[in-house]
């Protein structure tokens, strides 16, 4: 590839990256919105259960098991946006001062943290593939045969999706950090 073509492609590549970035943002926000909506669903099904129990004398089936699974959904679907918003708890004793004093090394350190994040959350996603496969194969369900049941695999699939997106979000942040580390200079 010659220099010329690289130059000519650069703006197009930029636009492409831009578009990818937008699609990515929509994906992360969309998952988060789904997770957010589930908080409302959670509130509603529990209140419906309270009503049913007190008015009709019978509790709704599956509520507690569904509530438990919905909660795992909320966490996995919103993890990516929480990561992007830098809302995971951390200490600032060392990190904030270090970043201010040594921007380049600070960005590098932040990049390392984000890589580790990508690795562990990616590990969760990886091992969820197997759990999804097993639940699918054995027809794992919540509830009681003869009363009401619901398969668990759709939930596992959503956990897998959320964790995968969160792992990639960590990678995106790490790339940004390392880029920053290469392009900025520490004050010396």
């Amino acid at each position: 590839m010659t220099n010329q073509t690289t130059k000519a492609d650069a703006p197009a590549q930029g636009r492409l990256l831009d578009a990818t970035g937008k699609i990515w943002a929509v994906l992360v926000d969309g998952l988060a919105a789904a997770g957010t909506f589930m908080i409302l669903v959670l509130m509603m099904i529990i209140c419906a259960d309270i009503l049913a129990r007190n008015l009709m004398g019978a509790s709704l089936p599956l509520v507690s098991e569904l509530g438990a699974l919905l909660l795992v959904m909320i966490v996995s679907l919103q993890l990516a946006t929480t990561v992007r918003a830098d809302r995971l708890a951390r200490t600032e004793i060392f990190f904030t001062g270090f970043r201010a004093a040594r921007p380049r090394a600070g960005a590098g350190l932040s990049g390392v943290f984000n890589l580790v994040g990508a690795a562990v959350v990616g590990g969760i996603a990886w091992s969820t593939v197997r759990i999804l496969g097993k639940d699918w194969a054995s027809g794992e369900y919540i509830g009681v045969t003869g009363i009401a049941t619901f398969p668990t695999w759709p939930f596992r699939a959503l956990i897998l999706l959320g964790m995968t997106i969160a792992a990639i979000q960590f990678l995106v942040l790490a790339a940004r950090d390392f880029n920053l580390a290469l392009t900025t200079k520490d004050k010396t």
Binding site: A68, L70, L71, V120, G123, S127, I159
Partner: peptide
């Protein structure tokens, strides 16, 4: 270790009681 990581993420939060967290926060 990898399997435990997956089990923790899939099962440890799967507890009706934890639903109390988003609800009380909201």
């Amino acid at each position: 270790s990898m399997r435990m990581l997956g089990a923790v993420a899939n099962d440890s939060l799967r507890e009706y009681l934890f639903a109390v967290v988003p609800l009380f926060v909201l």
